[in-house]
């Protein structure tokens, strides 16, 4: 079984976010980088599927030279190959990103590498476009299941579940297929020290993607801003267990304690 997992390098935000001077990027001078949580789980899922079924896994990203770090992190937990579609660091819109991934998959096919399963994150943590996997699916004529939190592969068929209305929806498609996963499908492992060392020595296959010229493009980013938040001071209801009556008064007042 041959699996391709697509990831995106994003800043590791936690507390407050600040913007660059031209308000086009997050100020990343003091931030580390990672991949989106959904994609961390997609990577783990690829490793588990190959462990269970045999075959090979490949990680692909479109991003700057520094995104090699994220590819090595994927190889450190057991991904076999890594492909970097190297950009100058500018953001590519979701249409252009999908087109570049499609080109890369076609180039792989031309070199004799066929994938049974293409894994994506449901949406990137930073841009949150919700469309790259679907655009790739339409371009390649593959079925695509989104929002997946449980995946089973058996006899060339993928059975996937996603949460809906407190319960689950079940989908089933024949391979080859695209599955966009959500965090929660698994608990990603930490890389081992030998894993990191092995990943360090592995080659990263690089190419320069060609931006597509015709057809749709966008959305085209103009600038970023921080949302205006109504930040106030909390009313302190009390300290420790003594605050309980004041808390219950509040719950009665807002009508949640009928």
């Amino acid at each position: 079984m041959n699996i391709l997992v697509c990831v995106k390098r994003v800043p590791e935000t936690g507390g407050r976010v600040t913007l660059s001077a031209d308000a086009r990027e997050i100020d990343t001078r003091y931030l580390g980088f990672t991949v989106s949580p959904h994609e961390e789980c997609a990577t783990e899922e690829a490793v588990r599927l190959v462990e269970a079924n045999g075959g090979s896994s490949t990680v692909l990203t479109l991003g700057p030279e520094a995104a090699a770090d994220q590819l090595r992190a994927a190889m450190a937990i057991g991904i076999d190959r890594a492909i970097l579609l190297e950009t100058d660091g500018q953001d590519w819109d979701p249409v252009a990103t999908a087109a570049a991934i499609v080109d890369a998959i076609r180039a792989e096919a031309a070199a004799g590498v066929q994938y049974d399963l293409l894994l994506f994150g449901n949406e990137a943590a930073d841009s949150g476009d919700f469309q790259v996997g679907i655009r790739v699916a339409i371009a390649l004529g593959l079925p695509c299941i989104n929002g997946v939190k449980s995946l089973e592969i058996k006899d060339g068929v993928a059975t996937a579940r996603r949460e809906a209305g407190g319960g689950w929806e079940v989908f089933q498609v024949p391979l080859p297929a695209i599955v966009a996963v959500r965090e929660g499908i698994n608990l990603p492992r930490y890389p081992s020290v030998p894993g990191r060392l092995r990943a360090k020595k592995k080659e990263i296959e690089r190419s320069v993607p060609v931006a597509r010229q015709a057809g749709a493009a966008g959305p085209e980013k103009i600038r970023l801003s921080l949302p205006a938040e109504s930040e106030g001071r909390a009313e302190i209801l009390g300290t420790g267990a003594d605050a309980a009556p004041a808390v219950v008064d509040l719950l009665e007042r807002i009508g949640v304690l009928a």
């Binding site: 976010v17 943590a125 921080l226």
Partner: peptide
């Protein structure tokens, strides 16, 4: 358009053509 990035902790002003 003004759209949410990072789940809404950041906003993006963008052009939508077509």
């Amino acid at each position: 358009v003004t759209r949410q990035r990072w789940g809404g902790s950041l906003l993006e002003k963008a052009r939508l053509d077509g």
